[in-house]
Design a binder for these strands. Structure first.
Lengths: 321, 321
DNA sequence: TACTTGAGTGTATCAAGATTCGTCAATTGC
DNA sequence: GCAATTGACGAATCTTGATACACTCAAGTA
């Protein structure tokens, strides 16, 4: 019985022999009448095909003390702190944060909820990358983009895919905002919204959010984004700063105390407003790294966040300063 | 308290570097100023401490055809078939079945439910071994033992631990039956039940089962069990067989068509009755291997099961015969 | 104080698994 | 119908990770 027709079945079989039963590759090879090399390749393929998953669980309450302190200090309902391998490697931090967030999300009951998602956030993007598919599908579960497209076309494509994939994994329906995130004028903004039925539907859903995975950003233009086009210009960022902005939550600017900074910039953005964020327990932020510290602190002070997933260094600074 | 979390933190860090970031052990060692050997050992420890988990997912619908056929034939709501590595190795089959069941259970919504558990079942025991802890704790979730102690004292200890651990992993409260599973007379049985408050509570909960993980057994005394004491004697099994029994569900005998065999044996058992099994959708059986074939078929024919997790060979026989 | 014990670590070595390379068969293109 | 290409495979080889052994250090014990 050498050639099992179905390759996936064969991979599963080998994977189970290797991982579950702990049989050595050579023995598996001998047992199935194939070479050790092939067993090795099959195992790689199984991993590739996500038949085999290795996850590193973040033990509960590993940083219990600091997490509790943060909860108390900022009135948060949940805090998760992950150890950053290298505090300077922001990409690495985002990956770790995303992974942690994936574990937390997968333990949550999201079925039937309306979930706001921020597809341009790098940490949320890596969340999607590590999320495991859930079996429970529910059409009532809605994944709503909370901001229109930002950045260059390539990034927009990634964003769409990210939202789609997130919806697939959670088992819900995605609602896209098919419009730029930042327009040149309030009039164009209105026109864009009325233009597309999908977008209108998504915008409407923003009033009914149960959970929001917000993006916290600085008042500058980070790497993959570009000024102008469907994003704020350098001048607009400068203007926000001159009004006291130290960061933004889905492009809504806040000052160091977390107080919203109202300006005409607000009327240029197609996306969730701070007032639309879910009332309590559903405001998630996955953000860390040195550059975002000011913004995160402001978001916490304004109580725009009640579940924070961040790195050790940021957590410590949030307690110290 | 911080004393014991320190090594765990280090293990987690190393595990993340290795598995999530894919860094080689030597590089990790160089990075952290330790030897490669220590990295290797830390990773082993992390695996031991369940910080690292590797699971082999059963791809959905790998055996779609046979599963659907079985569903249709016996009116089952769910069927999962796993490939047995060696049809003769019943211990191995049980491990595989348990692993599969763990994956299926973890995808289910069990919070707040009353779940009947059969702690002496080997496949359910291995289910517990591979189940991943769920984050959602709920005191409303109850794990009820569906049968008193059977077998030698050593086995009883394992059973208790198994139930306890299952409850921990699911995030619920365990209700134990602290009494023998089989008594010498109906009078002694009554006395045992009235004796212990915990046991009474568990027995009462058996009327409110939402989900039952039943054990399907043969009409003989399998390896770890011993006749007499708190288990049926050889004579009692013979008597059941002479009445037409081909198997039993939690020690309630059924004939080849699945029809319950009523006898005075019923009044000797402290455990769930067939009538107490949840109405629909909640009757799980994890059973396979050649020896149990007759019993499984009988249980299916009597519609005592609506979700079956079994091995390929049993599945095929169930369709053929 | 001196001795014993045991856990934890690094070095050197060995085994296990990944990779390279040549072969062969199936498929594609001309 | 015949190269050419692609992909799968196994044997040999190389790399990576596991382990045996020796050493250190701390804590207990005579």
């Amino acid at each position: 019985m050498a050639a099992d027709s179905e390759p996936r079945r064969f991979m599963t079989k080998v994977a189970r022999m290797y991982y579950t039963h702990g049989i050595r590759q050579i023995e598996i090879a001998a047992n199935l009448g194939i070479s050790q090399a092939r067993v090795s390749r099959l195992l790689q393929a199984a991993e590739q095909a996500k038949i085999v998953r290795t996850i590193v669980v973040i033990p509960e309450g590993l940083h219990a003390e600091i997490e509790e302190d943060l909860q108390g200090r900022y009135g948060l309902s949940q805090v998760h702190v992950v150890e950053a391998l290298d505090p300077n490697d922001e990409a690495g931090i985002n990956r770790d944060l995303g992974e942690a967030a994936a574990l937390i999300l997968s333990a949550m009951q999201l079925s039937g909820k309306t979930i706001g998602f921020t597809s341009w956030s790098r940490s949320l993007r890596s969340l999607v990358a590590t999320l495991e598919p859930s079996k429970k599908k529910s059409d009532a579960t809605r994944i709503v983009e909370m901001l229109g497209d930002v950045g260059p076309p390539q990034l927009q494509h990634d964003s769409t895919r990210s939202t789609q994939r997130f919806a697939d994994l959670i088992g819900g329906t995605p609602l896209f905002i098919r419009a730029p995130g930042v327009l040149s004028s309030a009039e164009v903004r209105e026109a864009m919204i009325s233009y597309d039925a999908h977008t209108r539907e998504a915008i409407a859903a923003l009033d009914e959010l149960d959970v929001a995975l917000v993006g916290i950003g600085t008042c500058s233009i980070d790497a993959p984004l570009e000024p102008g086009g469907n994003f704020f210009t350098v001048e607009q960022f400068e203007m926000a700063k001159s009004l006291g902005a130290v960061g933004q939550i889905n492009l809504r600017f806040i000052d160091a105390e977390g107080i919203p900074i109202e300006s005409e910039l607000d009327s240029l953005v197609i996306g969730v407003t701070l007032a639309q964020l879910p009332a309590k327990g559903g405001r998630f932020a996955v953000a860390g790294g040195r550059s975002k510290y000011e913004a995160v602190r402001a978001a916490l002070r304004g109580h725009w966040i009640d579940t924070l997933i961040t790195d050790m260094e940021t957590a410590e600074r949030l307690l110290r300063e």
